[in-house]
Amino acid sequence: MPQPTPEQRLQLRERPLCRPVMYQSWQELLFLHWRIDADIIQRTLPAGLHVDTCDGAAWLGVVPFLMRNIRPWWFCSVPGISNFLELNLRTYVCDDAGRPGVWFYSLDASQPLAVWAARTFFRLPYQHARMQATVARESGHVEYRSRRTGTPEDAVSRFEYEPTGEVRTADPETFEFFLVERYLLFADLGGGRLASGQVHHVPYPVQNVKVTEWDSRIIELARLPAPGRPPDHAICSRGVDVEIFGLQGVT
């Protein structure tokens, strides 16, 4: 099973030479991670993708955050459309060439147009959800709520978190780097075809985080084993500005 080299992990941080298709800002991110058996994850992946492991295991990430200033390269952001909330469930993979990236099981979002566009143009498994968040901008304290459309009224995922300690970036070849420094996503085009899409941003400014409320319901919705325990790792970032590049065929 191929595994990325340290050089491959660093190489993807370089900005592509082509023009991005979109600009976005990702703000007030919480990264919650659970250790999970790599064989369980491998069975869920399409052909051509392989589990990217750290410390002998695969990792499931639940990431609530704010999407802001979303716009195509040729237009400005639009009030009511360009700002929304997102909650994604992800794991870490590499392709046959060893390129490391993210595989999304689901991406819940509060903006129906964004759900349609991401499904149509990026082939990502977006789901519409009713979501709300309050943010204390000075402290970074976040209260976050999400319920996927079609689930019971009481099936609300709740997160409450606040950054603590000094801001830092993840050092290469560390566990934090493995989790957050991901610049490639993979999408299943159907018919045995895979595509990849690259993003570019400065390395995440990350901090330790105090998590007073968390939820793993989104893992169960993906028909993956419920962890039944608090996250094995938690970290947060106040955010980055992001360039999004178009999909490229892999297989």
Rank of each mutant, 00 (worst) to 15 (best):
V142I: 11
E153V: 14
F186V: 10
E220T: 15
L189P: 03
Y161L: 06
H201D: 09
E166M: 14
G140E: 02
H200V: 04
E160N: 09
R145F: 09
R130I: 11
H128I: 10
I219W: 01
G150A: 08
E166N: 12
Q127L: 14
E160H: 09
V156C: 00
E162I: 11
L184R: 15
S146V: 10
Y161G: 00
A195E: 03
F159T: 01
P163H: 04
P203E: 06
D188F: 04
Q198G: 02
F178W: 04
I218S: 13
R182W: 02
R158D: 03
H201M: 11
W214I: 06
Y183W: 10
G165M: 05
H201P: 10
T134V: 09
A187S: 15
G192K: 10
G191H: 12
V206S: 00
R168T: 04
D154Y: 09
F178S: 00
S139M: 10
I218L: 14
E138H: 14
N208I: 03
T151K: 11
G140A: 05
A222H: 05
T174S: 15
A187V: 13
V135R: 13
V180H: 03
E160D: 11
A170P: 00
H200S: 12
H128E: 09
Y183P: 03
T149F: 08
P152D: 05
Y161R: 00
Y161K: 08
D188K: 13
G197W: 02
W214P: 01
V199N: 11
Y144G: 00
R217P: 00
P125C: 10
W214C: 05
R147V: 05
S139T: 15
W214Y: 09
T164L: 15
T151R: 13
A222L: 10
E160I: 05
R148F: 08
W214N: 03
V135S: 02
D171L: 14
T151W: 11
V202G: 06
P205Q: 04
A170Y: 02
Y126F: 11
M131R: 12
S146K: 11
V180P: 01
L194C: 04
R137K: 13
T164M: 14
P125K: 12
H141R: 15
V206H: 05
E143F: 07
F159M: 08
R193A: 12
D215L: 05
H128Y: 09
R148A: 11
P152E: 03
Q132H: 12
G150H: 14
A195P: 00
E153Q: 15
